[in-house]
């Protein structure tokens, strides 16, 4: 189970604005998920090493060789606001 207060906290962390109905619905849905996970947790996993990744593929890395990135027009293609090759956002310091 999950409290509505926790849902509000999680929504806030995810920068989601939920209406009261949505909060209600989310509390229910998340509650069901947690119940399901709790069911899984009943399984005794003593001695089983934790799985970090579904597929074992250790040491996947690349050499330190530079490649050129995106062109300026591509960089700002999806950006709602820019100026002089900077992304601009509402001021974040007082």
């Amino acid at each position: 189970m999950i409290e509505k207060k926790e849902v509000q906290h999680i929504a806030n962390l995810a920068r989601l604005r939920l209406s009261e109905e949505e909060e209600e619905a989310m509390t229910q849905h998340l509650g069901q998920m947690i119940t399901y996970i709790n069911k899984l947790k009943e399984l005794d996993t003593t001695g089983v090493p934790p799985t970090v990744h579904a597929v074992e593929m250790p040491n996947v890395w690349r050499e330190d060789t530079p490649c050129s990135g995106l062109s300026s027009s591509e960089v700002f293609q999806n950006s709602p606001a820019m100026q002089d090759n900077f992304f601009t956002v509402p001021k974040v310091v007082k």
Binding site: W61, R62, D64, G69, L70, N78, N85, F87
Partner: peptide, 30 residues
């Protein structure tokens, strides 16, 4: 594989991975 050179023009050393565009995957620098 974007360059780490200091002092380049703003946003000239970026790619879809470091911009965090959806569907891209990071690969570790050895």
């Amino acid at each position: 594989s974007c360059s780490t050179t200091f002092g380049s023009p703003p946003n000239s050393q970026v790619c879809s991975i470091c911009l965090g565009l959806p569907g891209t995957l990071p690969v570790v620098n050895k």
